[in-house]
Design a protein around this nucleic acid. Structure first.
Length: 118
DNA sequence: GCTTTGACGTATG
DNA sequence: TCATACGCCAAAG
């Protein structure tokens, strides 16, 4: 395979995140899987960390598998994420979201997220 | 080139 | 619910 593969991975990850419906959330692992990189959730986090501010990406919809926000509770990013989520109608309790209700990778919804038919 | 670090995940107790 | 252990891999030192 090409050494340029990692670049390709980035594109897939961005696409996966951009595909999260408004008012829903997805875990890093789910993003990784959708990007064709199972088991590489850390790469997703790495990428988001390095993502420039000018990027129009719904990064706030990406949470841990536990539903917890992956940023330090005392950081500005944490508050920003909670704010953006609530603005979309997602309930955030003590830095956590009920994936059973809002998670795209939950049980509801390969249908909701996968697209029209997948 | 080896070691450490990290916006993670799953398994166990 | 919390803590510990291990797997994963790119980037930085």
């Amino acid at each position: 395979m090409n050494p340029l593969n990692c670049q390709d991975s980035h594109a897939h990850i961005y696409a996966a995140i951009a595909a999260i419906p408004r008012g829903r959330v997805a875990s890093y692992g789910a993003i990784a899987i959708r990007a064709g990189l199972p088991g590489r959730a850390r790469l997703v986090g790495k990428l988001l960390r390095e993502t420039p501010a000018g990027m129009r990406l719904p990064w706030h919809r990406v949470l841990r598998a536990s539903g917890q926000v992956a940023l330090p509770p005392d950081s500005a990013g944490f508050r920003e994420q909670c704010r953006l989520l609530r603005a979309e109608g997602v309930e955030v309790r003590h830095g956590r979201v009920a994936l059973s209700r809002f998670g795209v990778d939950g049980h509801l919804d390969r249908v909701l997220w996968g697209g029209p038919d997948s």
